[in-house]
Design a protein around this nucleic acid. Structure first.
Lengths: 221, 221
DNA sequence: TATAAAATGGGGTAAAATCCCCATTTGTGT
DNA sequence: ACACAAATGGGGATTTTACCCCATTTTATA
């Protein structure tokens, strides 16, 4: 009688997991990679400074896992993850950020990240996320659990509100925003009112502070 | 005739350099430390998440070198460096930040940092800064050179302007700022006018964006 | 197709911000 | 005593923001 050898059932246990790291901070990226490579199971395929560079480098040979920072100049994490999920549905994505609040985490999960790791986590947490996502296809940690729990209480911006929110975080008057979007100032004002209500702020100043401190815009303004 | 052995002249070459790392992002801090410890000459004395924790930990036994991140919750890099220079004048300080612009770099150098390393630099750059600062007492790199070159062209805020600038970056009306400082709204407005001129902005919105993007406030607002 | 949610925008008001003008006082250094 | 920067603040104007009211049209979706 023929018995399938154990190592075929559990082949992933000894398999090499290939990964890529996308983060603009070289010092962080290189030290993270060096640490991860101490785990013999892991193999670095690519590193990149932003989304554009990453997509170009992995196009012909995507890795199993991609670690993507949210805040990057040029193409930020939100855009990058959206693109990756559409063009490389089999590649697992670990979103990484120093902004570990429910807003940012929910946003990346919505864009298609398979899990989230904070820059406040331990290196072992990152390793666990990698192996977990590779072996099981998902990884639930405190961040993901908390974000999902709070999801129903979180304000949800409509499409137009989100568009105007981005403009509100830049240096434009309502008149200029209205001009850009070819709508009335009154409409901009009406949406602004709703955005203020949802984020519980009462001045543009505090909206911008809130946005920048919570990583709601992946790139600098 | 007695000849002093070379190793006494160059004793620092084999000496152990003790260092501390102060950065709130655990993942970055630990991977950086792991990388630095690969340089056998270096020895970790302490790690901390913010200025307060650092000062407490090194009080009885300061290291040769302290690497301090600018942006930290609680006691930020600016405050920490100011304190360290006053209480541990012999300890060399390497300021570290993701904000590698002339404003932030000049600010930390003014507070007393002995050199500056960007999170966009290579790990080797950090190693070079450490050995340089230890052996020569200073370290000139492209950041420090550029910052000094641009120094004369940079706007310089007066004491009061700087105080009001901090308030402008928070969620307060001019009336509230005036109340806090026990001065007239008109005075606040007058200083604001000068601050706008110096930083070349024309709205509070762009002032806040400018400040947050350039790391001019070491802690979140 | 009924219904709800989203997007549009007009009217009006009060507060806040922006930008000038100007003068006086206070402090620092020569 | 003099010069000069820094800090103070009044007067006055326009623009922008903030916050209500209201109604219509468009879009999604059950």
């Amino acid at each position: 009688m023929f018995v399938t050898p154990l190592h075929e059932y559990y082949s992933f246990m000894n398999a090499t997991i290939t990964f890529a790291v996308c983060d603009d901070h070289t010092l962080f990226r290189k030290t993270l990679i060096a640490t991860l490579l101490n785990f013999k199971q892991l193999s670095l395929l690519t590193e990149a400074q932003n989304g554009k560079e990453l997509i170009f480098k992995i196009s012909t040979n995507p890795p199993h896992i991609i670690i993507v920072d949210i805040r990057m100049p040029g193409m930020d994490g939100y855009e990058t993850i959206t693109y990756l999920k559409q063009h490389f549905p089999d590649t697992k994505i670990i979103a990484l950020s120093g902004y570990d609040n429910e807003y940012a985490i929910n946003m990346v999960l919505e864009k298609g990240a398979d899990t989230f790791i904070s820059k406040n986590d331990e290196p072992e947490d990152m390793y666990l996320a990698i192996t977990d996502v590779y072996e099981k296809g998902f990884h639930i940690n405190k961040w993901v659990r908390e974000a999902k729990r709070k999801l129903k209480h979180l304000p949800k911006l409509t499409l137009k509100e989100n568009e105007i929110f981005q403009f509100l975080c830049r240096d434009l008057t309502y008149g200029q925003i209205a001009e850009q979007l070819n709508i009335s100032i009154k409409t901009v004002d009406r949406h602004r009112d709703e955005i203020f209500r949802k984020f519980n702020v009462n001045s543009r100043t505090s909206l911008i502070i809130f946005s920048l401190n919570n990583g709601l815009t992946g790139s600098a303004l």
